[in-house]
Design a protein around this nucleic acid. Structure first.
Length: 826
RNA sequence: GCCGCGGUGGCGGAAGGGGAGACGCGAUGGAUUCAAAAUCCAUUGUCCGAAAGGGCGUGUGGGUUCAAAUCCCACCCGCGGCACCA
């Protein structure tokens, strides 16, 4: 009788069926309070809804969802939520371009992303979805802002801030990359504006120190954050300047070079400079320097190649260690916002000071002599910033640089001239944005009462609709919404005006992971009990591009929450997986470049499982992946045929006869099943999805080979399929669920216990022993895994090939590593 | 300049002191087909050889070791972070 061709895998029908069953059956809903021994909070960074799903989402969702599903099968109670980072500039820009409301655009995109995530088979808890642009969510941004304000962690200050001329808003330092706007690439300029800041600098020490607690972070990421925070240790030293009442403090990492300070420099914008030149001939020169500096972009201002420019301010400072009078200058290479904005200049031992001194013919004095050499200041071509011995430094002469900093600082402290100090590169987090689509800052300005916090019971301050939201020069669009802006003062009732700026969207994402544990609470941001039950996040995943953005802000927020008694864990996500970026032709995928692969196309042509497997099989999760130029059809060559192969294997083997005695072929296959369970489980534990898939391919190949060789034992084949489907289920949820039910099971495979293996069956019966002579492989011999040393050596020496390699002689040395290897030295 | 990561077939990648190249793509050959697609089977680092077999091979040069892609040193190349940060 002719056998009927097996039914082909109709991915669309299977996906529709199971998505509906899973979602309507609330399969992935997590409990409010999990069993502490079993809880697993698996989180992936919520997406920004800038359109439909792109391959970056597919990649990270595939990784994240495989982890979540694997843990469910391991018996854990898994919280795997999803939400939308829905506020932000792109929505506004797109809305302006299309002449529609940002809200409309955002909600439409959320709908698309939401449906695509379901289609991809993501096992998100669909009952906890949050959208940050909902007043029910951003109310709590405002609530946190007010708590920060009460604690002195939110303040408004006029300062030179980064301004993007294209996006017409200020930016946080973290959003300026190489002097350019992170979003649009426009060079930023400094502007003096009154802005709201969060005092992240108060937490800088903890942000560095607690990195150690993040045992599941890569060194690379920790390094990025350390560099960004930029902690340095040194000393503060007081200088007295003529005509200035209070002593002026400078910060230096090299107090041991104090005796070599031959001039003093302040930043051009420094108020001290005004004080020094007030009423003198230098006043106009200072103004000229300032104007020149103000014209520069940040790129130019901080460029090391640029010629340094400065002016003498006509006054002298006293070097506290030797009473020497040194001229005070203003120069553009000293930055207003690092340290104290004023430095002692030691041209012999600092390259920048050296260049400046050469240009303006200022004296250079060597106070650190390199070992066994004398530096001649007149002949030096660059500063000597390295090791040596102190010279020309009064009582400290001869002190080696290994201990000089410590000794001098202690001496300064004892004399009351200075003290130990540390400094940070990180600046306070600028959270004001002059844009419409964000959380309104809950502050009201009253002529009489000044800055007044919006009372909690008046939250949320709802973003007004139907206003003209096009950006204005340095002014939030909300400032023009008269009806919204003009409110009575909460304190005195007189007419007052709302703060028209909105918050940086990174405020939303700094605490969203707590909201997931209690997403619809309208009394508090989240129930501390629920949050404590789920936190910390057991496995977080997302892009490395947030290394010094979201990942720093969220850590800061978490620490404030700890201080407020709302959280217990110093670090919110001690285990973090950063996926590699996907490119094509080495370039980021983008519509304008035309190097894009649309997930929708992959869904249609090959289905979710093939797409997920393609992403997971491409390489390790952290590795970047350059998608083949051919585009979506790559899936049609790689994982789609394999999914079909799995399908056919199941269809053809399900009803196989044969339950009798098992021969060597069946035994070998059983052993491979158990070995596969073992290694694939290890692969899941280490997120090595690519090798897990490779092992499963081997298992499938072995099954086909077994059948091609005439094997047909039903029991073995069904055991193989059983293991294969379970091991594959987290990565390919649809085909495995479908085949699982076709095997006659009524419950979902996704809650089946993870398969276990028999250690006796997982070890091989025969091991190939390698025999080396002088480090070269000369023969391989099949032996039993528990072979004795004597037998192994006897077998090795008995080999003709080994005899030939030894030239008939005896080995002088024998090393064994049984049962894998015998190594002989002639 | 400081800090970090990496360099393995034609390609994506395995292995992370013990048989280099698992798995897959591509390529070649075969089966099936009127033919093709799809599918199944086989071969596939490189050089010499008909084969058996052997030489050489993980960026370069050294070193440690019975044994190095793996550990150490130096260098070359690529990528990333910070950078007039005192």
């Amino acid at each position: 009788m002719e056998q009927e061709a097996p039914e082909r895998y109709d991915h669309r029908a299977v996906e529709d069926r199971w998505t509906d069953v899973w979602v309507s059956g609330r399969y992935w809903s997590a409990p409010d309070i999990p069993d502490p021994a079993k809880k697993m909070y698996a989180l992936t960074m919520y997406p920004y809804p800038s359109g439909d799903m792109h391959m970056g989402h597919v990649e990270i969702f595939s990784i994240h969802d495989s982890i979540a599903r694997y843990n469910r099968m391991k018996g854990r109670e898994v919280l795997s939520p999803i939400g939308f980072d829905a506020f932000g500039l792109p929505a506004e820009n797109a809305a302006i371009k299309r002449g529609i409301d940002p809200k409309e655009w955002t909600y439409a995109n959320i709908e698309k992303l939401y449906n695509s995530a379901k289609r991809l088979g993501c096992s998100f808890d669909w009952e906890r979805v949050i959208r940050t642009c909902d007043p029910e969510y951003y109310k709590w941004n405002q609530w946190f802002f007010l708590r920060f304000y009460e604690r002195g962690l939110a303040y408004k200050k006029e300062a030179p801030v980064n301004w993007c001329p294209k996006d017409k808003t200020v930016l946080a330092n973290e959003q300026v990359v190489a002097g350019k706007c992170e979003r649009c690439g426009t060079p930023v300029v400094k502007r003096n504006l009154a802005q709201w800041f969060f005092k992240i600098t108060d937490y800088a020490d903890r942000l560095v120190d607690d990195l150690e607690l993040n045992t599941g972070w890569t060194e690379h990421l920790k390094m990025l954050q350390r560099n960004w925070i930029g902690r340095s240790f040194g000393a503060e030293v007081e200088f007295v300047i003529e005509g200035v009442d209070d002593p002026v403090t400078v910060y230096t990492t090299r107090p041991d070079t104090l005796w070599g300070a031959t001039f003093f420099v302040v930043a051009p914008e420094h108020p001290l400079a005004d004080q020094i030149v007030a009423g003198t001939e230098y006043e106009t020169q200072l103004q000229k320097l300032r104007d020149e500096v103000a014209k520069l972009t940040e790129i130019d201002r901080t460029s090391t190649d640029r010629d340094k420019k400065g002016i003498f301010l006509g006054k002298y400072a006293t070097n506290p260690v030797n009473g020497e009078q040194i001229p005070v200058w203003a120069a553009d290479y000293v930055l207003m916002d690092y340290g104290t904005g004023a430095i002692m200049a030691v041209p012999a031992h600092d390259q920048r000071d050296f260049e400046f001194a050469r240009k303006y013919e200022l004296p250079i004095r060597v106070v650190i002599a390199p070992a066994g050499a004398d530096l001649d200041p007149d002949k030096m071509t660059e500063a000597h910033a390295h090791d040596g011995v102190m010279v020309n430094s009064d009582g400290f002469d001869g002190t080696p640089s290994t201990e000089s900093v410590k000794k001098v600082t202690e001496w300064l402290e004892s004399k009351g001239l200075g003290r130990h100090a540390k400094n940070f590169r990180i600046r306070d987090w600028l959270i004001s944005r002059q844009r419409y689509w964000g959380t309104p800052i809950p502050i009201i300005f009253c002529d009489d009462c000044g800055e007044v916090a919006v009372p909690d019971d008046q939250l949320p301050v709802v973003l007004p609709e139907g206003v003209d939201f096009t950006p204005k020069e340095g002014l939030s669009p909300l400032a023009a919404a008269e009806e919204w802006v003009n409110v009575p003062c909460p304190k005195c009732g007189k007419p007052a005006r709302r703060e028209p700026d909105t918050m940086d969207t990174f405020v939303d994402s700094a605490w969203y992971y707590h909201r997931y544990t209690d997403p619809f609470n309208d009394e508090v941001p989240f129930d501390v009990k629920k949050s404590a039950a789920w936190m910390p996040i057991d496995q977080y995943s997302g892009g490395i591009e947030h290394a010094v953005l979201h990942l720093i802000y969220a850590r800061f927020f978490q620490k404030v929450l700890v201080d407020m008694g709302m959280a217990k864990d110093p670090e919110p996500f001690p285990h973090l997986l950063n996926q590699g970026i996907i490119t094509m032709g080495g370039k980021r995928m983008s519509k304008s470049r035309g190097n894009i692969v649309e997930p929708q196309e992959a869904f249609e042509l090959y289905g979710s499982d093939a797409l997920r497997l393609f992403m997971l099989f491409s390489g390790p999760p952290e590795a970047p992946y350059d998608w083949p130029e051919e585009g979506v059809t790559a899936i049609g060559r790689v994982t789609h045929p394999w999914v079909q192969r799995v399908w056919r294997l199941c269809e053809e083997s399900r009803d196989a006869d044969g339950t009798g005695a098992e021969g060597p072929a069946e035994e070998a296959l059983r052993k491979q099943i158990h070995r596969t369970i073992k290694v694939v489980t290890d692969d899941y534990e280490s997120f090595s999805f690519n090798t897990a898939i490779a092992r499963l391919m081997e298992l499938v190949n072995a099954a086909y080979k077994y059948k091609a060789d005439g094997g047909s034992h039903g029991d073995v084949l069904r055991d193989l399929i059983d293991a294969l489907l379970k091991l594959l289920a987290p990565m390919a949820p649809y085909i495995t669920e479908e085949q699982w039910t076709r095997l006659g099971h009524e419950s979902s495979i996704h809650f089946e216990p993870w398969p276990t293996y028999d250690p006796a069956l997982a070890t091989e019966e025969k091991v190939t022993m390698v025999v080396q002579v002088n480090g070269k492989v000369r023969d391989t011999i099949d032996v039993s895994p528990d072979i004795s040393e004597d037998d192994a050596v006897k077998l090795a020496l008995g080999s003709d090939k080994v005899k030939a390699a030894l030239n008939g002689g005896e080995p002088s040395r024998v090393i064994t590593k049984l049962p894998r290897m015998v190594s002989l030295v002639a």
